[in-house]
């Protein structure tokens, strides 16, 4: 039989408005791009909600939205970041992350190959972190209404018994420990961004920290606080901790690990590495007596090999972070203002 009107094209190279309209193309997108990578017993039901069993005790719930540009950067992409980010936000609260949802806002015209690459990375990251992506949603917006792809991930985890992590728990005398070099993620993104044309070997540190965090808590359950210093960097996170606990924090400049490449790029751009985002680093505050054990567990872990004791909590300059310089002077480590502004000369 001869068809009298052209059949709709079902195999596209790029995202079309119809991919988000709930019809045949939406189905095709799910079948071709999402399911092959993300499938698991819960998601495969394709119901409007995920259903799972819950153990007794407390749950943790977190959400974050990812709008990074460029989508692909040395060391990772937006998909990996979206999974690791929510995994880490749950884990630093002492929760074992279990189930994630993923919401996508796609810009019309996004190459499907790029979308698939991102989804594949999300699946890999979920596997690595030991979590399942059990619910999802996709919307498509017209060209110019978003920057290619925005991803929201939300997640739930189950809080370990006997663990009490809070930004209000810091006590004078506590040790401040950092899991490794700072500024890698932010600098990898900044140096890749259009317009910044120097070559660098800086890679994002995006990583799931739940494995290391729970290894630490197995040995030292009395850790006072944990945070992953993402936007605003170590400077923002420590200022928040100092202010929430009404204590001071004193850092030792010489002990803070920074890669030479990151230092070099920071010098050129006039940006303080302490204010640059990390996506796979852990800041941890622990009573002095537990510091050595924490450091030893972290250093035996892939994501904590360069862990270092970088400072102490003090009963002085409450709400402020102060840096001891190698020259013996002191300066305030300020809460960063907002957007990083490269200097003129």
């Amino acid at each position: 039989m001869q068809l009298s009107c052209p059949a709709p094209i079902l195999r596209h190279e790029t995202v079309q408005m119809a991919h988000g309209a709930g019809g045949r193309l939406s189905q095709e997108l799910t079948r071709r791009v999402f399911m092959p990578h993300l499938q698991n017993a819960i998601l495969d039901q394709l119901d409007d909600q995920a259903k799972f069993d819950v153990p007794p005790g407390r749950m943790a719930f977190s959400t974050d939205t990812y709008v990074v540009s460029p989508l692909f950067f040395p060391g990772g992409n937006i998909g990996e970041l979206a999974v690791n980010g929510t995994v880490n936000d749950l884990a630093v609260g002492g929760a074992v992350p279990q189930y994630l949802s993923a919401g996508f806002v796609l810009e019309e015209g996004l190459p499907l190959a790029e979308l698939e690459e991102i989804v594949r990375s999300m699946a890999d990251a979920a596997r690595k972190a030991g979590v399942m992506i059990v619910a999802g949603d996709t919307k498509v917006v017209q060209k110019g209404q978003c920057d290619r792809i925005f991803i929201n991930t939300s997640g739930v985890g189950f809080v370990r018994e006997g663990v009490d992590l809070s930004c209000r728990n810091l006590r004078p005398g506590d040790a401040v420990i950092l899991s490794g070099t700072i500024g890698d993620h932010g600098m990898a993104v900044m140096t890749t961004r259009e317009g910044l044309s120097f070559q660098s070997r800086i890679s994002s540190d995006t990583a799931p920290l739940n494995g290391m965090i729970h290894a630490v808590l197995d040995v030292v359950p009395g850790v006072h606080a944990m945070r992953d210093p993402t936007r605003g960097g170590v400077a923002a996170t420590l200022n928040e901790l100092a202010s929430s606990s009404s204590v001071g924090i004193e850092l030792d400049e010489a002990s803070i690990p920074v890669r030479d490449e990151v230092r070099g790029a920071s010098e050129l751009l006039g940006i303080d590495p302490l204010t640059i985002a990390n996506e796979g680093k852990l800041l941890l505050v622990v009573p002095e007596s537990g510091a050595a054990a924490v450091l030893s567990v972290m250093r035996s872990h892939d994501y904590g090999r360069e862990a270092a004791l970088i400072g102490r909590v003090v009963d002085d300059h409450h709400g402020m972070v102060v840096m001891k310089t190698p020259f013996g002077s002191r300066r305030i480590v300020e809460m960063p203002l907002g957007e990083q502004l490269p200097r003129i000369c």
């Binding site: 310089t325 020259f327 002077s329």
Partner: peptide, 9 residues
């Protein structure tokens, strides 16, 4: 000067 606290020393 300020960052390194040279004025203090």
């Amino acid at each position: 000067i300020m960052r390194n606290g040279i004025d203090q020393l």
